[in-house]
Amino acid sequence: MLKVEHLTKVYDNGTVALRDVSFTVEEGEFLVVIGLSGSGKSTLLRCINRLVEPTEGRIVWNDVDITALDEAGLRRVRREIGFIFQEFNLVERISVLQNVLSGRLGYVNPWWSLMYYFPPEERQRALEALETVGLREKAHVRASDLSGGQKQRVAIARALMQEPKLILADEPVASLDPVLAHSIMGYLERLNREQGVTVICSLHYLDLVQRYATRVIGLREGRLVYEGTREDIRRLSDEEFKRIYGEEAQRLGG
């Protein structure tokens, strides 16, 4: 269970990205965060694994206060939280396999890993993860040679290597076309359903939200402005959606 309590983030340049945000995520939920760009979605997700240091407030995950952890403790928590980025963030100049293996860095012997060595069972695990996302044959291709959708699947395989209990996905499909979007969301949904991984995902499109979310929270200018269950969302009309979301909201289908 993840509890976010009174989370506030003020950046060094004075921008207030989050104001007193509190919510709870139960084990196994598929929580979707909606909101305009600039509403604080990315900051919220990055605060949870402390890629961004929160200014105030606490984040408690399974009774561990993430905000109070020292570096070593933070690394132990991070390795169980997968993070999917909008821009995939693969390391372009190394192979797909090495990108996937890098998801295991929190577990393996750090000294061996500095020499780019991974034990055979880890390599096997990486190949299986690639198999899961259907990219087994691309293992030795340079990451820069992949298409957008393939890159995101590699990123998912990288997250799989972490054996995550929680996946944070920051607009995972915003850079992809609609068909690919469903395929990527499908992987996340399967992880959520079959392995009970909690997913917190920010999204743009109403139909994707309605299709995949079990719960939704809405952010506007850093404030929590909406909280609803799966049923609430299904009942939402476009107008209500736009009211929460802002005028720019749209359906994926157009």
């Binding site: 690394r75 991070r78 993070f83 890098s102 929190g106």
Partner: peptide, 9 residues
């Protein structure tokens, strides 16, 4: 960011 998220030092 991506590598840090995996718990790398």
């Amino acid at each position: 960011e991506a590598i840090q998220s995996t718990g790398a030092n």
